[in-house]
């Protein structure tokens, strides 16, 4: 177990390295002058030169790369070009909102999706099952930011039940503010999770041990939960991992719709202001997120399925 985890952690090193290298290539080697981008077309030659010197853009590429890696490892991203605020402060102010939104959305998605999937699986090929099929198709097709905008217009703008923007102060106010953004992400995820629950459960319910349980006279509820759902947990947890990452990327647009603080909005406004140290940091935050969620899912697998532990 410890050995497996250690190997898995070591495995992260090349991944993180690759991600950092891709970010570096994207930011530095591809066309576009960061100095021109940051200062705008009106900057004169002297200003551009001073900027390049200050940001280390005149160094040879390999030296820039080494500096870049070293700064990234120390989580030192420098200051925002726009506000001159340390980027670590910007991240500390925004990151919790994105994490909170992601957690609430996924929890809500599971809360809606799993019961739907369970119910559809027990009513296979009947009306509820077909309804779930249609729900999941629509859930795949509706863009989350569109759903968010509709919820915003209906419940905040017209009915006035929820605030229009911001994240709120304190727990209850925060919950009031996060409900619609989280719901827009959760409804669509619940379509995916519901369908996945149904498929995984039906697959398990066809197995011999489920028939044995039924033959022994186990109650249907016990068959579904003890024998069915428990064994459907492995494919389901993969789906939850995918959902967390999908929610995270969906959160970028949702933060914009509801005008909530968060890493997504930070990144998007940095792109518009060409604030490239912030873009770099934002990209790295998201990449780190992905790597961490994948690691977390691997650890969850070990707990759900002891066979994986045995193999390593």
């Amino acid at each position: 177990m410890a050995r497996y985890l250690l190997l898995r952690l070591l495995d992260l090193v090349p991944t993180v390295f690759l991600v950092l290298t891709l970010v570096f290539i994207a930011m530095r080697i591809l066309p576009g002058d960061p100095a021109l981008a940051a200062l705008g077309a009106n900057a004169d030659g002297g200003q551009l030169e001073a900027f390049r010197e200050r940001m280390g853009l005149n160094d040879p590429l390999w030296l820039q790369y080494v500096h870049f890696l070293w700064d990234a490892v120390r989580l030192d991203f420098g200051n925002s070009l726009m506000s001159n605020i340390p980027i670590s402060t910007l991240i500390a102010n925004n990151l919790p909102h994105t994490v909170y939104l992601t957690i609430v959305s996924v929890a809500l998605g599971l809360f809606i999706g799993i019961p739907l999937g369970l119910y559809a699986a027990t009513q296979r090929n009947k009306l509820p099952d077909n309804a779930l099929r249609i729900y999941s198709l629509i859930g795949y097709s509706v863009p989350d930011f569109y759903l968010g905008a509709i919820l915003l217009i209906v419940f905040s703008l017209n009915l006035g039940w929820f605030p229009i923007n911001g994240a709120g102060e304190g727990f209850w106010d925060g919950l009031h503010h996060i409900f619609l953004p989280a719901l827009s992400l959760a409804l669509l995820k619940s379509a995916f999770l519901g369908r996945l629950t149904r498929t995984s459960l039906l697959e398990v319910l066809g197995r011999d041990y489920v028939r044995t349980a039924r033959a022994k006279g186990a109650r249907e509820g016990r068959v579904i939960f003890r024998h069915g759902l428990r064994n459907a947990m492995l494919p389901l947890s993969t789906g939850i991992g995918i959902s967390i990452l999908a929610t995270l990327s969906g959160a970028v647009a949702i933060e914009l719709v509801f005008n909530r603080p968060g890493i997504g909005r930070l990144l998007i406004s940095a792109i518009q202001e060409r604030d490239y140290p912030v873009i770099q940091a934002g990209v790295m935050m998201f990449a780190t997120f992905v790597v961490l969620v994948n690691l977390l899912m691997d650890i969850v697998y070990i707990f759900i399925d002891p066979r994986i532990r045995m193999k390593s």
Partner: peptide, 24 residues
């Protein structure tokens, strides 16, 4: 395969946002 696996870890939308962030 290694590079594919790493890129597959990213949801397509997120990958697209991150590259578009850098490229414009």
């Amino acid at each position: 395969s290694r590079v594919i696996d790493m890129l597959m870890a990213f949801p397509e939308l997120l990958l697209a946002i991150l590259i578009a962030a850098a490229l414009g």
